[in-house]
Design a protein around this nucleic acid. Structure first.
Length: 694
DNA sequence: ATTAGGG
DNA sequence: CCCTAAT
């Protein structure tokens, strides 16, 4: 039995969409569809053979059965589990062969406020880390409240990230039902981490039995200000960040316009910032915040398109859970980033004129018409608390960049567990997996407009993070600690999987039912060094194309950044960075997919497939040659062929990018000419060809 | 969902 | 790569 659970680290609200239905169905159909190809392929095969170019006949291996059938099944699991939730030791067979493919675990939410002139962005995230490693830290998400953590006093020296192991009791909630802890870690800590996917909840709570979410820590750390939606303000140690608030929000990072503990709002327009709110009483502020909270609530559960934007870091990690069993799962992710209407901003019942008073949620047009889908919640919004950009000389030390980090996602991983396993063992397995992730040591990366900011010494001001427009493109990543992570395997090092490569390694398939529990991480391959090399090889090989490492990034970033725990570097930019959603004319448009130049091996695969299938059957081409290249859609392939033909026709001097071997370009022209001809007289295709060639 | 083509 | 029209 396999339970897929995708856990993503990274600022959430931006989640990788699930494998598109198209991909799944295509895969399904593909197995049957390929067979029919050979009929009218033979003609060209003969031609090619005569031309001295042997076309290797190879059948694409049937793709592995999808472990996850998507949302529908997920719902059924959910329901079935609810029925049996009372039985603690009930066999988890309800999960059998089912899984939720695209749920993220969202760790928490927090709002941070940082001095703009200091480079403490990472520390903000460190706060999270600390929370999961410090002795008295607590991160909890629960429903309906926003926490605002004012971290203005953070400085570098206090931003030590504890990479200690994650310990504590573990509670797991599945589908809203809490199941008893299957394992205990050293439990003195008050830590609380609760991660919840949209539907499935998994909470890991390491906490004091005495104190729950309200525990107070005696800490000599500098205090933070925590504001909950009920406007209660608490001073807390930086390690103590808790909330009873809801998890998975659509926004990852939100900048809250607050001068101090009051006047917290998500204004995104400077003009409506402080002045507008300063006079406002706490009551007013509270109202705003409540509105926000409820707003989030309403929309969150209904999000259909708010799929998880997860990277295709398909160089997966295998988590060794104690036995000698390692599994690999095929990637289920496909992320043609389509338009999405996530993060709807409910129109706030129009009590505020249709727009969110806080400015975070500008209902675009239709907002007042009551159409919730007409607007979106920004993932990030920002406001300057001072007019720094205009009056730099008057910039005071109080100028802060306020960020709200709504959530982190735990990297996806897979769990494989026998049907006969108990819920307790399931919990234990999950716990171990999560523990392994969290204890591995994490570091934070800051992305600005898709680019990683590597210079830690730059101030926010210098990097432009303080600017409102830049904040739109601000993102964070969680990456495995450098010291623990060997260099990742470069996808380029692996030959592209050609159709003739034969069946996929069997290791892609689920293990026998008798297999012991297994958890497979979907991170970089190096996160967990303690895995058998052989399996890893197959593992990566079979999905080599899923974690592409675009040259522009991987080359530039050398080693460190290519090791994002969750995603390949490319995807850090794409999937994890917080994207402007507001004040943009294209705010509702999907982010443009990252550019991923075709490698020579990919081109070869494409050429070979087109030689066989022709130029009008891109779906089949995709199935045949790129079935496991999730980031290549048939449209991509068609476009690539188009450009290939063009490239082949122009002079070599005019060509750009990675040079394609002339031999391949020749084949492109040959095949293109051939199939163009076939289009003209398709009716005689088979006969005439056969005759001619005979 | 695919295909074909323009942008 | 994106977007669309047409299947």
């Amino acid at each position: 039995m396999v339970l897929h659970k995708r856990l993503d680290y990274g600022f959430n609200g931006y989640q990788v969409p699930p494998t598109p239905r198209a991909a799944r169905s295509a895969r399904r159909r593909g197995i049957n569809g390929r067979i029919t190809d050979d009929g009218h392929m033979c003609a060209f095969d003969l031609l090619a053979t005569l031309a001295g170019k042997l076309l290797l006949e190879g059948e694409s291996s049937p793709s592995s059965t999808d472990m996850c059938s998507g949302k529908e099944q997920y719902e059924s699991i959910k329901d079935s589990f609810k029925e049996g939730k009372q039985q603690e030791n009930k066999h988890v067979s309800n999960f059998c062969n089912q899984s939720s493919s695209d749920r993220s675990f969202i760790v928490s939410e927090l709002v941070l406020q940082a001095p703009r002139f200091t480079n403490c962005l990472k520390e903000l995230a460190h706060t999270q880390n600390d929370a999961s490693s410090g002795p008295t830290s607590a991160i909890t998400t629960s429903e309906c409240s926003e926490k605002v953590v004012s971290a203005k006093h953070l400085t570098n020296d206090e931003s030590k990230v504890g990479n200690g192991s994650f310990t504590g009791k573990a509670d797991i909630e599945l589908f809203g039902c809490r199941v008893s802890p299957g394992c205990k870690l050293d439990g003195e800590s008050n830590r609380q981490i609760k991660v919840e996917p949209n539907d499935l909840r998994l909470s890991i709570c390491a906490r004091n039995d005495k104190s729950n979410s309200e525990c107070q820590m005696a800490c000599d750390r500098k205090p933070l200000c925590l504001v909950s939606s009920d406007n209660s303000v608490k001073s807390l140690s930086r390690d103590y960040i808790t909330s009873d608030s809801l998890p998975f929000n659509r926004e990852n990072v939100k900048l809250v316009s607050r001068d101090d503990d009051e006047n917290s709002s998500g204004c995104t327009q400077p003009s409506t910032t402080n002045k507008a709110f300063r006079p406002s009483s706490r009551i007013g502020d509270r109202r705003i915040r409540k509105l926000l909270a409820s707003k989030y609530w309403k929309v969150t559960p209904n999000l259909k398109d708010g799929k998880h934007f997860k990277s295709d870091a398909d160089i997966k990690n295998v988590y060794h859970n104690g036995k000698n069993d390692f599994k690999q799962q095929r990637s289920q992710r496909d992320y043609p980033f389509k338009k999405r209407k996530l993060y709807h901003c409910s129109s706030l019942s129009n009590s505020d004129g249709g727009n969110c008073t806080d400015g975070m949620c500008k209902s675009p047009g239709k907002g007042s018409s009551g159409d919730p889908s007409a607007s979106m919640l920004p993932r990030v919004s920002g406001t300057l608390t001072s007019e720094a950009s205009e009056h730099a000389s008057f910039r005071s030390k109080d100028a802060h960049v306020k960020l709200k980090i709504k959530s982190f996602r735990v990297p996806e991983f897979f769990i494989e567990i026998p049907e006969t396993a108990t819920v307790g063992s399931l919990k234990k397995t999950v716990m171990e997996a999560v523990t392994a992730i969290l204890s591995g040591g994490l570091r934070v990366g800051v992305l600005l407009q898709g680019k990683k900011i590597r210079d830690d010494n730059k101030t926010l001001l210098q990097t432009g993070i303080c600017h409102d427009n830049k904040l739109d493109a601000l993102g964070f990543t969680l990456e495995p600690n450098l010291s623990q992570a060997p260099p990742p395997l470069s996808p380029e090092d692996h030959p592209f999987l050609l159709p003739c490569d034969g069946p996929q390694p069997l290791s892609r398939y689920p293990p026998a039912p008798s297999t012991v529990n297994t958890a497979v991480f979907r991170g970089t391959s190096d996160t967990l060094p303690d895995l058998p090399g052989g399996n890893l090889s197959n593992f990566i090989e079979s999905d080599h194309d899923s974690a592409p490492s675009p040259p522009d990034i991987s080359l530039e970033k050398s080693t460190v950044d290519s090791r994002a725990l969750v995603t390949a570097p490319a995807m850090d930019v794409e999937a994890l960075s917080v994207v402007p959603m507001r004040k943009s004319k294209r705010s509702e448009a999907a982010q443009r997919r990252i550019r991923r130049p075709f490698s020579v091996s990919e081109v070869e695969a494409l050429v070979q497939a087109v030689e066989k299938l022709g130029t009008g059957r891109w779906r089949d081409v995709k199935l045949r040659a790129f079935d496991n290249a999730k980031h290549r859609t048939y449209v991509d392939l068609k476009d690539k062929w188009k450009t290939l033909v063009h490239t082949a026709r122009i002079s070599p001097q005019q060509r750009r990018g990675e040079p394609v071997p002339q031999e391949l370009l020749d084949r492109v022209l040959t095949a293109h000419a051939y199939w163009s001809q076939q289009q003209v007289k398709p009716q005689f295709k088979q006969q005439s060809e056969t005759c001619r060639l005979a």
